[in-house]
Nucleic acid binder design. Structure first.
Lengths: 129, 129, 129, 129
DNA sequence: GTGGTCTAGACCACT
DNA sequence: GTGGTCTAGACCACG
């Protein structure tokens, strides 16, 4: 197949990714209690079941663990979190480098562009054409 | 809304983006004749109507123009192509910088990671998160 | 119904089974005085009423008898205890044989597996499936 | 805690175990197509979603794989199936040996009891007292 | 209140 | 028709 379509990924996967990113970023430090399933679901405007499924993914990955009645907690294993952060960063780096290379940018230009960047960064929607 | 879901974008938009990227990358140089709609559609495994719509987007953006019977041609305006390339690159740079900043990477670490990267880049499956 | 779910059985039944097993195993020899209902209930972390009901089951089965003020005693009828032990063992044997047969094990393989087993047996978490 | 209650395990786990057992037993040979989710769900009298979840467990274990529109298939990896069968059998053997040891049976008696067993085995409900 | 399970019913993409 | 996802709403055990 010469071209792969962007099919929308499952919502629970996107939620799992978002939560993973936030834990990797330190939004919730190791050992911290996460908001309840219902709370997170309400915050994101999704069904609690969907959020539960997303959190089950994090649990499978060892990033969080559930205490029956007390809630869910970020793992105390800082190494696991650090590894996740590194993994995510590496993926971004590779993807970015690949995209820029496809546009014919050399590594030097790429570094220059990043150096010129203002430090407080706000997102911009991706133009398509 | 505190979180925006990835919704699958229309196919013709995805195709337009792909073609734009290829023109910006120089796959088809300024003034070059593009393959026919049918040919492109067949290559991508897509309905010719969809490909037609994608190409209409490129025309709207001024990147290609149709000559009645001779086919479609990439614009001769190298500045327009260069601007497109710069615009795409800038968007990638900003997005990348924002993602890395969210993970707590400083600009220095970011530059270091890119410097360490091997030059021929091969894709890697996106890890979860 | 082609498949019967494991439904959690009443607690007093589970306790009765446990006590029966212990008497059959000789933990309390024939004629021995059982700990008081309160004591047993405390040991198992169970409401004394529930334990009372469990013991009533043992009385019904003739394995223990209550002496008005002196407490409950294991039956002196060694034959009854032996029969219980035999009955439990037979049930285990049949169930085990059936499970192994369902997995396609011949009696010879089954005997081989048991022969290879180390004699002091420590429990192992039940693997999935 | 000196005594662990039988809490009914989740239905989807029980279903996963049953299906695993059937695959290990060769009811569905390697590469065979499983009945559809809806069919299996109807057969067992459960909700299709519950059955789906059970099958997802088998998928995680590598015992089956889903072909988008064609159905689910047992893995072709006979080694994986054999390993599962061995694992299940070992668990049964250990549990059986432990139960019999608790009743004071020696290995010799245990082997004798199994040797005496009739070959076509039908199950018998476990008596409790 | 917490996490967890189950059901019912809908919708989607793919062939 | 297939697998897969999502929602809505219920129920449970545990404190």
């Amino acid at each position: 197949m010469p071209f792969q379509f962007d099919t929308a990924r499952p919502l629970y996967i996107q939620l799992a990714e978002l939560l993973t990113r936030r834990i990797a970023a330190g939004d919730w430090p190791p050992g911290a209690r996460l908001p309840s399933v219902r709370e997170l679901a309400a915050d994101m405007g999704v069904n609690p079941n969907t959020m539960q499924r997303a959190l089950a993914e994090l649990e499978r990955a060892g990033l969080v663990h559930a205490e029956r009645t007390a809630g869910r907690f970020v793992t105390e294993d800082a190494g696991c979190i650090a590894a996740t952060r590194t993994r995510l960063a590496a993926a971004h780096v590779r993807a970015f480098a690949a995209e820029m290379a496809a546009l014919g940018y050399t590594r030097a230009e790429l570094l220059a562009a990043l150096t010129e960047l203002p430090d407080p960064i706000q997102p911009e929607e991706e133009p398509h054409g």
